[in-house]
Amino acid sequence: MKNVLLFAFWFLVGLIALFLAIVLGDSGAWYLAWVLGTVMMILIAVTGTVILEVDDQHND
C-alpha cells in the first residue's frame, strides 16, 4: 500500500512538472527559469556542503 501511495505521489509530481514545463515553456519563460534556477541553486548549495564534508575528512 505504501509503495502504491509513494508511486502515486511521484507520478503526480511528475505530471505537474510536465504540465508546468509545457505551459510555462510556451508562454511563461521567466516563470520556468525561476523554477529551474531555484532548483539549480539548491542543488549547487547542497553540493557545496558535500565538498566541505569531504575536504574535512581529508584534513583529518
Binding site: M40, M41, I44, A45, T47, G48, T49
Partner: peptide
Amino acid sequence: AVRSFRVATLFGVFASIGVICL
C-alpha cells in the same frame, strides 16, 4: 557557522547574478 556560510555563499552568488539579469 562554517557550514551555513558555505551553503549561503554558493546559493547567494547564483542568486545575485539572477537578480542583476532580471
